[in-house]
Design a protein around this nucleic acid. Sequence first.
DNA 1: ATTTTAATTATCAAAGTTGAAAATCAAATA
DNA 2: TATTTGATTTTCAACTTTGATAATTAAAAT
Lengths: 194, 194
Amino acid sequence: MGRPSVKDERREQILRAYETCVARFGVEGASLEKIAEQAGLARPLIRHNVGNRDDLLAALVDRFLSRSERSIQRMIDALPESRATETLIDWLFDPNYSDAQFVLVAEALIAASQEDPALATLMKRWTRDFIASVRGVLQNEAPNASSDDLDAVAAGVAGIYFNTDSLTPMGDMSDVRNASKRAALMLAVSLERS
Amino acid sequence: MGRPSVKDERREQILRAYETCVARFGVEGASLEKIAEQAGLARPLIRHNVGNRDDLLAALVDRFLSRSERSIQRMIDALPESRATETLIDWLFDPNYSDAQFVLVAEALIAASQEDPALATLMKRWTRDFIASVRGVLQNEAPNASSDDLDAVAAGVAGIYFNTDSLTPMGDMSDVRNASKRAALMLAVSLERS
DNA sequence: ATTTTAATTATCAAAGTTGAAAATCAAATA
DNA sequence: TATTTGATTTTCAACTTTGATAATTAAAAT
């Protein structure tokens, strides 16, 4: 054997930096220069460890989809049996627990979907899957709710959550965040009452 | 006099094209080349009629803020006296009436706020003003609702609306759009009941 | 028709971005 | 220690983007 490979760690390091850049500058604004600077690496290392621009985006999308699937599943599995919906909303709207960059990356990929039909297909599925996950939690606690109401409240809670995190680049908006959380809770309550 | 100036029309034409590019590629991704192509003009005309990159962004922000203020006011003034909230939600979630590009530009400017504190201040005010406008309509129809509930439902309806339009780059998501609209209506109803 | 005003086009240099290959350096094993 | 494997650095050429100026053309008024 020769020198041990650090390709896997480097790859992760680069994709993390790329993710940060996509969250901040969008897919089109994330240049290789910025990614290299963010990662603290020389630019040629990006090419060496991941590939060219297209390879980067493909790797990022892949990583984003698998990681978000796992992280959502982990969150749902960690929910308590009682007051699961309330706890879910607590977590989604807690800036310490929820990772705003996750939503910002999703929004950037959604925006880039207009230029990339294949990406659009993936992100459509991702969006619907996320809403479906929320719906599952809601249904557990409100088994008598109508299917339409479940759909509505799931889309509503998910939408309010996405929007709240998408405001984070402006800095502190805790008043809007708190009001948004209250709205999500109101939606959940109106489901149980219906 | 000499040759009549078309600067004002050209300026509008360029800013419209810039807006489209910002909605599609983000603030960092909207290059002068793309803007010129979108406007159907030679690139030097951008500089001649509006200025350099910074001048462009400043003009776009200015135009966006004044136009959205007017358009929101116009929409609210056009609301009928009875069932104003329901009508507002009808309009916000009607893809033919509501202009998705408007929300996409707002999201792009919000994303760019992270790199531009002055822009952040403007967009914070814009966001709060929009929510306040919705709150005004809600309060008119539910004068007995608590201030906190009004804040919550206004933030919720606005958030669901923003999020819904931010999904448009992926193409048809009418199922999610319909569910989101139902959620907004549920929020409004729960306000009147409280 | 000449003048005047301004739109439009042509062109340039500087800076930034990308893709790629070659050269160098570091760490493990035989 | 020599070899081998692969990380890292250096370097190059092509291309894009930006900012700016000069030259040209078009339309109105005197």
